[in-house]
């Protein structure tokens, strides 16, 4: 384990207890006991914090893999249309009024992610080339986004519409252990698949031809990336909606602290993603707004300026 990973794990070990204690009702161990503290901890805060860790790890790891695969520091796991596909699936569940049935919404989201993955594989399929693949992903993302807008505009009643719009903003409010049981195994499986891609992603930094000459099997790598991203991002969207920018920011922040090979960045990115989402979620709970700040919005508020700053810096480098 690298020093960077060790530091991140230490930070997580500090942030996790904080996220359990923080909220509208602070639970402070050494002051007078809060009524129902054990219920709040075990049934509300712990699953929520665990979910933040899982989703953040998935987003961070997927982002690092995505940037490595596309050889582009501006790549985001949303690019391939898997996240929009999953979101569209979830929106359909809300649209059809099935979201109240347990497991229906995540199941629809995973179905949407799977559909986007299948389309990607169908279009890009045989050669394993990246340009066509990225274009296909962008088209799928655009199609899923349009269909989502269509569902919103056609929603049967204002309640469904507001439900859809709110859900799309991404949040970890009112999540339970059942969400954890959905997201955890899928995200873990996805991260393992992506981690196994590490050496091939390293080879990709020399370009597709050189990677092939180093023994990388382009089609196999592409499949592994689709499956890995699909599992991590699909599971994340299924339980928390669209949470943007983590996959873009985290690999960037981590890269200078590694030897810059994509494989050295995968684990630190997963850890840093977990940390970022956990901390952002604490802020969401504490932010002085009516109701609660949505996690997706909070991270986009943080992410968009970051993205702009990044572009400015890159522009200076390229100029």
């Amino acid at each position: 384990m690298t020093r960077l990973s060790a530091i991140l794990i230490a930070a997580l070990a500090l942030a996790l207890p904080l996220s359990l204690l923080a909220g509208r009702i602070w639970i402070v161990p050494w002051s007078e006991p809060v009524p129902n503290a054990s219920v709040i901890l075990a049934e509300l805060r712990l699953p929520r914090s665990v979910l933040a860790l899982i989703i953040g790890a998935g987003l961070g790891g997927a982002g690092a893999a995505m940037q490595g695969y596309l050889r582009n520091p501006l790549a985001d796991p949303g690019l391939f249309g898997i996240a929009p596909g999953a979101a569209f699936g979830a929106v359909m569940a809300l649209f059809l009024g099935l979201a109240a049935i347990p497991f229906m919404l995540p199941a629809f989201a995973l179905l949407g992610a799977g559909g986007a993955m299948a389309l990607l594989a169908l279009i890009a399929g045989r050669t394993g080339g990246i340009a066509l693949f990225t274009l296909a992903g962008l088209m799928i993302a655009s199609l899923a986004g349009t269909l989502t807008s269509l569902a919103i505009s056609l929603s049967p009643n204002p309640f469904a519409m507001s439900e859809i719009v709110t859900w799309l903003m991404g949040a970890l409010i009112d999540r339970s252990w059942s969400d954890v049981w959905i997201a955890a195994p899928l995200t873990l499986a996805g991260l393992i698949v992506l981690w196994a891609c590490g050496p091939s992603l390293d080879a990709m930094m020399l370009g597709e031809e050189a990677a092939l000459s180093l023994g990388v099997e382009a089609r196999r790598l592409q499949w592994a990336i689709v499956i890995g991203i699909g599992l991590t991002i699909g599971a994340g969207v299924a339980v928390a909606g669209i949470v943007g920018f983590v996959g873009l920011m985290v690999p960037h922040l981590g890269r200078p602290f590694t030897d810059r090979r994509p494989s050295s960045l995968l684990v630190p990115s997963a850890l840093a993603g977990a940390l970022l989402v956990l901390v952002a979620d604490i802020f969401c709970r504490l932010a002085p707004v009516a109701g609660e700040l949505r996690l997706g919005i909070a991270l986009s508020l943080l992410g968009a300026p970051f993205f702009l700053a990044l572009l400015l810096r890159l522009r200076r480098q390229l100029a």
Binding site: R71, N72, M204, M205, L206, G207, A210, R255, D259, R260, R261, P262
Partner: peptide, 8 residues
Amino acid sequence: SEAAWDVD
């Protein structure tokens, strides 16, 4: 040949 990431 180019390296996409600025490795040493």
